[in-house]
């Protein structure tokens, strides 16, 4: 099973997962980390320790440019089987948890990105 690591500012990741599980029920092979109170070096060590070795994983981060993004990108640079995706939102996570056993990692990454973007709509259009 493809693993999920959600790394965000504050409690954003924990709340996202809480809401996802209220929609889909409890999920396995998922962990949440926060940058709260951590310098970059400390966060890098934390992410390193939680990325499953030798297993396929997607690292979800809240925005491109924050310390969660930097720390995850640094780790994924060393490990070919994990990929960082930024801009995590509810549609991205519900897509991931409902489709992760149905397709290979490369296809899943494209699919969850498309679903995340499709979730952003203007009422005026």
């Amino acid at each position: 099973m493809i693993h999920a690591l959600i790394v965000t500012h504050g409690d954003l990741g924990a709340e996202l997962l809480r809401v996802v599980e209220s929609l889909l029920g409890p999920q396995e092979a998922v962990e949440v980390l926060s940058n709260k109170g951590k310098d970059l070096e400390g966060l890098c060590d934390l992410v390193d320790a939680h990325v499953p070795s030798g297993e396929e994983a997607i690292l979800f981060v809240d925005f491109c440019g924050g310390s969660p993004f930097v720390a995850c990108r640094r780790t994924s640079g060393d490990k070919r089987e994990c990929t960082v995706i930024s801009g995590v939102n509810l549609p991205m996570l519900t897509s991931f948890f409902t489709k992760r056993t149905k397709m290979p990692l490369s296809q899943l990454l494209q699919t969850i990105r498309d679903d995340a973007v499709r979730g952003i709509q203007l009422s005026s259009e």
Partner: peptide, 11 residues
Amino acid sequence: DDRLFHGQVIV
């Protein structure tokens, strides 16, 4: 700043 380039700085 021990987070170096990050949200508070770049935003």
